[in-house]
């Protein structure tokens, strides 16, 4: 598996190279790059299967590298020191990322995920989706990538009625009556979708307020959705949910 490492700090490049050589020998590092131009050139020259891409590179970003490439038929593992800038968009695109200093176990997991995906690689649609999100910074992100067993689904947030936890899995209930199972915890999606107005009403429930019909007083508080579903509101969340619905 051909890989290119991109980071503006030499010690980070060297460290990642050492860890990969030791723990992921299947990764063949064909080049490293310390700036956007070098990175674009290296990618066009070597046509890698995978790039490790630092997000914050001085004045520029790893997203600039992607934007300059006409063809993006490779996988990306983002590497970032602090998960603020851009990481939200990366999460919405369901792309993989590592935090510095790189944890060996997380690195191994990420690489093996890429190995599984590599089989069917043409244009990487998740990257297209990511760049779209970065390019048009809307007040609220309008779509989310949901990794399914055999495909990535891009779902408009306005189409999501609610999410329900099933241990480390999450069910998405859509307006067209579809029910999707995604292998990430509800907590992760709650963290992603709460800034977009979704309400965590209960440890197992995340609700799109757009679909709330009424607040029923039964059992200490239940939300009736337009779909007819009744969603419990747990005590610790009551105030927050009430406030959010009042302010709509």
């Amino acid at each position: 598996m051909k890989a290119i490492l991109i980071d503006d700090e030499f010690s980070n490049l060297e460290n990642l190279r050492t860890l990969l050589q030791k723990h992921c020998p299947q990764v063949n590092i064909v080049a490293t790059a310390k700036n956007v131009t070098d990175a674009v050139n290296a990618i066009e020259k070597h046509l890698p299967d995978l790039i490790f891409l630092d997000i914050q590179m001085g004045e520029q970003t790893g997203f600039d590298v992607l934007n300059l490439l006409p063809k993006r038929n490779f996988e990306v593992i983002f590497v970032t020191a602090y998960d603020q800038y851009g990481i939200q968009a990366v999460k919405f695109a369901a792309l993989d990322y590592l935090l510095k200093p790189v944890d060996i176990d997380e690195l191994k997991t990420a690489v093996s995920k890429v190995e599984q995906k590599l089989v069917t690689l043409s244009q990487n649609s998740q990257l297209d989706f990511l760049l779209q999100q970065i390019k048009n910074p809307q007040p609220a992100i309008s779509k989310i990538a949901l990794p399914m067993q055999s495909e990535i689904r891009y779902i408009a947030l306005s189409e999501i009625i609610r999410c329900e936890a099933d241990n480390t899995y999450t069910f998405f209930f859509l307006a067209n009556n579809e029910k999707l199972l995604v292998s990430k915890s509800l907590k992760e999606y709650a963290d992603l979708l709460k800034p977009n107005g979704f309400l965590r009403t209960h440890q197992s429930h995340l609700v799109n307020p757009k679909f709330v019909k009424s607040w029923l007083k039964e059992d200490g508080g239940v939300l009736l959705l337009t779909s007819g579903d009744k969603i419990p509101i747990s005590k610790p969340n009551k105030e927050v949910v009430k406030l959010a619905l009042q302010q709509l």
């Binding site: 936890a165 241990n167 480390t168 915890s185 509800l186 907590k187 965590r200 440890q203 197992s204």
Partner: peptide
Amino acid sequence: IKTNDNLDLENIE
């Protein structure tokens, strides 16, 4: 660290 089986560790905040 003991955790009760009937606690949904992933989702209880």
